[in-house]
Amino acid sequence: MNTPWTYLLLFLAMSLTAVSALAQHKYYTRTVRRLARENNDPGSVLVSGRGKGRVRGAIAVLVLDKQTEVIRAAAVMEGASVLARFKQRPDWVGLCARDDLPRSSPRLAKAVADARTHIPGRRKPLPTPGSMLRR
């Protein structure tokens, strides 16, 4: 049943997916730039990380004190679609990123841990043989 309408519908679905993914990427970029502009202090570092799940994922964008890893600003996005939006987390400000953070899902905890690995000057943990097979 390969009619021209089938191909047109497939093309439209793929186009909608591409356009919505680009829109979400622009939204992510705007959020990161806004946080960087608002928190442009010496000794601060902006990092982001992701936590993947089977269906849903999470992204954490954190502004940290480079030495103590105390959170100065935080925005998180959780969801399963391109319609997910960043939410500010003022309740995390002043907390250490190494500790368990309030109201965070397991995916969000993974995203924060991943963000901490992106602090400049910090050595990243070496991959284990088993972790290389899971990719």
Rank of each mutant, 00 (worst) to 15 (best):
R54L: 14
S81A: 12
L64K: 00
I71Y: 05
I71F: 03
A74M: 11
A73S: 10
A80V: 11
R72C: 09
G53Y: 10
R50Q: 10
S81T: 15
L64D: 02
R54A: 14
M77T: 00
G49R: 04
V61L: 00
A60Q: 12
G51N: 13
I71S: 03
E78G: 11
R56H: 14
G79P: 05
A75P: 03
V45D: 08
G51I: 12
A73Q: 06
S44Y: 15
A58P: 07
L46E: 04
R56N: 15
D65G: 06
K52M: 15
K52V: 14
V70T: 08
S44F: 15
E78S: 13
G57S: 10
R72P: 07
A60N: 12
G79F: 04
Q67E: 15
G53N: 15
S48D: 11
A73R: 06
L46M: 07
I59D: 04
T68M: 06
A74V: 07
A58E: 10
G51S: 13
V70G: 02
R72I: 10
E78N: 13
A58V: 09
R50Y: 13
R50W: 05
R50F: 05
V70I: 13
V76L: 07
L62V: 10
R72A: 11
S48M: 11
K66I: 04
R56M: 15
L62A: 09
L62E: 07
R72H: 14
K66C: 02
K66S: 09
G49E: 01
L83G: 07
L64N: 05
G79C: 06
L46W: 04
V70Q: 09
Q67V: 08
S48H: 15
D65C: 05
V70S: 08
I71Q: 03
R72L: 14
G49F: 07
V63L: 04
I59P: 01
R56T: 15
